[in-house]
């Protein structure tokens, strides 16, 4: 059977379903064939359905959300922050949830790992500023 298709506002046809797919037909594209009262989406037409097999772009998994493991380790080792351990635990949750197929849970763990890494880094920075100000005060006292 030959069909007409409305691909990107250009009417293409009359062609076979396979040829129309080569022209860029998608399941949402409107198609028409002789004798039909009106245009119909290709996904509802039996002859087109076998052509819409599982699309590798839709079935492929998104990449694993960032585990923030290097940041968690940097915070733990360089900022002397036990908070970094919490971030490492969340990094581990990013991986385990992603592996079990819980992508949204993995994203949440990723956000938590980032938050705890930032909390650790900021508290490390504040501590450095605190240490620096104490040193400065002592320095000024000695000066007088």
């Amino acid at each position: 059977m030959l069909y007409w298709a409305n691909i990107n506002n250009v009417k293409v046809g009359p062609l076979e379903p396979g040829q129309l797919i080569a022209y860029g037909l998608t399941p949402e594209t409107f198609v028409w064939r002789q004798g039909w009262q009106q245009w119909c989406k290709a996904k509802f037409v039996d002859e087109f359905i076998p052509w819409f097999g599982p699309d590798p772009r839709h079935t492929a998994r998104p990449p694993m959300p960032s585990s923030y493991l290097p940041w968690a380790l940097i915070v733990t080792i360089l900022c002397c922050m036990p908070i970094g351990i919490v971030a490492i635990i969340y990094s581990s949750k990013v991986e385990s949830r992603y592996a079990s197929g819980d992508y949204i849970g993995s994203c949440k763990a990723s956000e938590a790992a980032r938050t705890w890494s930032i909390v650790g880094a900021v508290s490390g920075l504040l501590y450095c500023l605190f240490f620096g100000s104490i040193y400065l005060i002592q320095f000024i006292r000695l000066w007088h």
Partner: peptide
């Protein structure tokens, strides 16, 4: 790089 064993090893080594 972020496999289960890498993250677990990092946690165990640090603690």
């Amino acid at each position: 790089l972020n496999s289960r064993w890498v993250i677990r090893a990092a946690f165990i080594v640090v603690t």
